[in-house]
Design a protein around this nucleic acid. Structure first.
Lengths: 350, 350
DNA sequence: TTGTACGCGTTATCAT
DNA sequence: ATGATAACGCGTACAA
């Protein structure tokens, strides 16, 4: 490539790959150029001269060199250890990811993404090996998680989405699963149901366990028995279908499902057996994902603003990076009990 | 942090953050350690000694420093400039992404992801600014795309998924949209339909345009007129609903939709107007996404193995990185005409 | 085979 | 306010 040194043409687009190139073009030192770019102190005159050259140039700071010299890169890692085949169609995770990408993009931050394509050990290894990361956001939904453990005991700033009791000192964004489960169970009791069943979430997950606890707390407080009214599910529609059959046999007059997907499955079973919702069996879910309001009847559920969770996690991480000495950020997001026709049939339509 | 120098305990986990640390621990030079790690030449004895220390150490090479020194990082960028709200629920893109993440993870490569959260100009700027990338995969689905143009004219190795005629010299993975559209139109003609309509894809997209061309070619070859049988759509179910109504008015006895989503919409309209599929109106889509086979009746369509496309793109990029001098990799993936009951009603069930 | 020494592009400290 | 200069951690000619 031959390049003409036609210095006469002031507005020609020059090529400057490094700070040294810029320094040569402006006649100041590399250090000064760096200061101008990063908002350091510089005389107004030189600042202007540098910026003029900068404008006629395709210069971009080298992020790898920056990270090496300053420790900052503007890139964060996001770990959602879920099989991509399950993750993408699942409104829960996709909304979370939307929130994260939205906020990061808005703040000009880059994102490296790890999904459940590897073992957790491999993932942890890979993430810790990616030394250009400034920090990481990880969805911490299971009781045992080597990735979470590894990240928390590393010196990489980390924000969890969800958390376990052991994560007390970590930064996280979560909801009060126990309280929310208690509230929705109490709602079912308050409309006169006494045999409220529960289809649990996966037993290895924090949300699953905590919602069980909340359910039991509400039942206990009301003086109702629940030992024969709990059936294990796993957050899938399918588990809702089969578990509901069992609960109907045992005479449940209401069912609280650990999430909306399993509630949708339960709904199928209830209607297939000729029973009416909510007259014969009241039904409730958890999450308020998109389809919940479109079920027939619309589903009573607990709304958590998942996109907000994602944004909040990104915000917490960026704040943490801006002020590393700061105490851990622990954010408990609000939930909202959304009562629809699956529990209260005759609700007037506005 | 105080650290005991208990050298007696051979199996203690030592901390070594840099090559220099390792060099000090083994007694060889930093260069030698580097060679052992990267598979360079070294005496069998020293190699073993280094690896022993390596095993008792939590050392991880610094990726930023590596990139700076060698130009390689093992990280590739993936650009899918689609609004996250649309992307995640869309089986087309999610399958593509699955394929990409699967292959990259398998090969131990990292991934930075850009979605449609910014303007294309901002995205291009950001991607080019991420100097730790070794290369990038970008979905190139629109006729005009500054990101694609910018990447192709940069020196960053790039693989397109989809391509335009202008991208002749680029590496890409694509299908022959024109041929496939021709084939499925010809199929509809071969079952005796003479008024085959077409609901197009978005007019700014390569796939949309090429499928129009293929449709027209088939109609023309059969001596059929089509000037009043084409209605603009945009790949959405909604556009299928409204466009189908128009085509029915004009007397279409078959409809080829530019994708499965719009075909699903068309199906709704056809049935709502009391017509039968395929007896009165034969129907065909494109993509063969998950739900196509579950429609009633199951949808005749063109299958493209989207997950494979993603994997193939990742493979092409990694090959390109391994052999930069190599000619561009241009991969045309096969498509398959999948004939189901929406075009040939009486097909025996196996 | 191994070690020395330089370069990668940037930030940051320290004189000036 | 500005310019040398030393890190940052690694790869790799080149010399030994």
């Amino acid at each position: 490539m031959v390049e003409k040194a036609s210095d006469g043409a002031q507005h020609e687009l020059k090529v400057a790959r490094t700070l040294d190139d810029l320094a040569a073009l402006t006649g100041v030192s590399r250090a000064t150029v760096s200061r101008v770019i990063n908002g350091g102190s510089a005389a107004e005159a030189t600042r202007r001269r540098v910026q003029e050259v900068l404008a006629r140039t395709s210069y971009r700071p080298n992020a790898a060199a920056r990270k090496l010299a300053s420790g900052r890169s503007g890139v964060v890692g996001v770990v959602v250890h879920v099989d991509p085949h399950l993750l993408f169609p699942d409104p829960y995770f996709s909304q979370l990811l939307q929130g994260i990408t939205d906020h990061l993009a808005e703040q000009g931050a880059g994102m490296m993404l790890w999904l459940g394509n590897r073992t957790k050990e491999q993932t942890l290894d890979h993430v810790l090996g990616m030394s250009f990361l400034d920090g990481v956001i990880i969805s911490a939904h299971t009781l045992e998680d080597p990735v979470v453990d590894g990240l928390l005991s590393s010196d990489l700033p980390t924000v969890l989405i969800g958390h376990r009791r052991a994560d007390r000192t970590a930064s996280y964004v979560d909801i009060d699963n126990e309280q929310a489960a208690d509230a929705i169970t109490t709602h079912l009791i308050s409309i006169g149901r006494t045999r409220v069943g529960h289809i649990t979430g996966s037993r290895g997950t924090v949300a699953g366990e905590d919602r069980v606890t909340g359910y039991q707390r509400a039942m206990h407080r009301a003086g109702l028995r629940f030992d024969r009214l709990m059936v294990d599910g796993d957050f899938t529609r399918e588990s809702g279908v089969t578990s509901a059959a069992e609960l109907l046999e045992r005479g449940a007059d209401a069912i609280f499902c650990a999430n909306d997907a399993s509630a949708a499955g339960a709904l199928e079973t209830i209607r297939a057996s000729g029973l009416r919702v909510p007259e014969d069996v009241a039904l409730a879910g958890f999450d308020d994902v998109d389809f919940a309001v479109h079920l027939d009847p619309p589903l009573t559920t607990v709304r958590q603003a998942l996109r907000q969770h994602g944004m909040e996690a990104a915000r917490a991480l960026l704040q943490l990076l801006g002020d590393p000495g700061h105490a851990p950020r622990r954010v408990l997001m609000p939930t909202e009990l959304v009562i629809r026709q699956s529990s209260v049939g005759g609700v007037p339509h506005e």
